[in-house]
Computed example of a mutant assay.
Amino acid sequence: MRSCWFITSICISIFVTSISGLPHFFPNVSAIPPSLIPNAIEGAWTSFQNFTGCHPGQKVDGLAKLKRYFQYFGYINNNASTNCTDDFDDALEEAIKTYQLNFNLNVTGELDAPTMEHIVRPRCGVADVINGTSSMNSGKRPESHIHAVAHYSFFPNMPRWPPSRTDLTYAFLPANQIEDSVKVVFARAFVRWSDVIPMTFTETASFSTADIRIGFFSGDHGDGEPFDGVLGTLAHAFSPPSGLLHLDGDENWVVNGSPSTAYAAVDLESVAVHEIGHLLGLGHSSVEEAIMYPTISTGSRRVELASDDIQGIQYLYGSNPNYNGSTAATTQEGDTSGSGSHLAGRHWSQSVLLAVGLGLLMM
């Protein structure tokens, strides 16, 4: 998100007046109305598939919209308004090459099928490139693609919560009327991080005084980063210590179990764990198995921290003394009970710097 590293607070009235209806939560895939099935092929960026095969030198109707996509995520200078034409110019070619490097694709500078498949995926609204500096693979040396090398990143100047703030509170926007089943999902998402760092997260009823404020919004909600309806950008969060986490209220959020690719539905916990990583100071990672990877496909569930996530967050905060050093071999899960029973006794709880700390030491 372009503004997330310099906005530190937003007036509470903006939250309240920006609500357009209530969020769409479904306990499981079978609870989603059949009328929503067609939406699976009607995401915010589905029309970009029409540009598959385009290459430098062409002029294609609507290509300016794709340029604005690359502007939004930092790949094209946000002030370069003159570049937003339908011409496949040098700026677009360079943006595509950087994108392909970031997502470990063949660097062709063309809109080939694998590149387009990544572009249209639902994703986090936080930018991959900030002030011309990428938080992902494009800024790393070729040998850094070795699996053992970290690809985590931080926000500019490496903001983090002060060492004295080890017990953070969080609250939900009252107007969203969040049910207990949804709160359990967020509690579980916070635990994913507090399991590995010496920090706890406790829900509070006071939205105005909470360290972390969570809200679901539709469209333009006052922070300069409007949501775009079903799929597209799913959520965004601000760097420490702002504590702001915004999710798109128009998404079809699945609370328990894996969503289905037949629906335009998104796993809530997967997105919550990712955005909490931003709240704690992590940028995006090029490791596709990592929680901090920017995209997630419909029908996917990714909730377990990967080694890359753990290395990054422990560089900022150190290790939870109870952490045993184990990590999941994969971050994909097929299902979940949604019971939150494993929370008992465990309420432990982007210019972006590249491969800092342990990652640099291992290069």
Score class of each variant (00 low, 15 high):
residue 163 P to F: 11
residue 89 D to C: 05
residue 52 T to R: 04
residue 147 H to K: 13
residue 340 G to T: 06
residue 92 L to Y: 05
residue 121 R to W: 04
residue 154 F to A: 05
residue 149 V to P: 01
residue 209 T to Y: 03
residue 221 H to N: 13
residue 127 A to Q: 15
residue 251 E to I: 09
residue 126 V to E: 13
residue 12 I to E: 13
residue 76 I to G: 00
residue 119 I to K: 02
residue 228 D to T: 14
residue 358 L to I: 13
residue 276 I to W: 00
residue 356 V to K: 09
residue 269 E to T: 09
residue 292 M to N: 06
residue 147 H to E: 13
residue 289 E to Q: 15
residue 269 E to I: 09
residue 218 S to L: 04
residue 283 G to M: 01
residue 261 T to G: 09
residue 90 D to G: 00
residue 148 A to S: 13
residue 287 V to G: 02
residue 58 Q to Y: 00
residue 104 N to L: 11
residue 131 N to Y: 10
residue 253 W to L: 11
residue 222 G to F: 09
residue 80 A to K: 09
residue 157 N to F: 13
residue 252 N to H: 14
residue 192 R to M: 13
residue 314 Q to E: 08
residue 98 T to C: 13
residue 362 M to L: 15
residue 5 W to I: 02
residue 103 F to Q: 07
residue 85 T to K: 02
residue 326 S to K: 08
residue 67 K to A: 03
residue 263 Y to K: 07
residue 275 E to V: 11
residue 31 A to S: 15
residue 202 T to W: 03
residue 258 S to G: 07
residue 75 Y to W: 11
residue 126 V to Q: 08
residue 3 S to Q: 12
residue 89 D to Y: 05
residue 354 L to A: 11
residue 8 T to Y: 12
residue 159 P to Y: 03
residue 74 G to I: 07
residue 252 N to K: 04
residue 118 H to A: 02
residue 289 E to S: 14
residue 192 R to D: 06
residue 354 L to C: 09
residue 194 S to L: 11
residue 16 V to F: 10
residue 292 M to H: 09
residue 268 L to H: 08
residue 191 V to Q: 14
residue 148 A to T: 12
residue 91 A to R: 01
residue 63 L to Q: 01
residue 337 S to D: 15
residue 17 T to P: 00
residue 276 I to C: 03
residue 234 L to R: 04
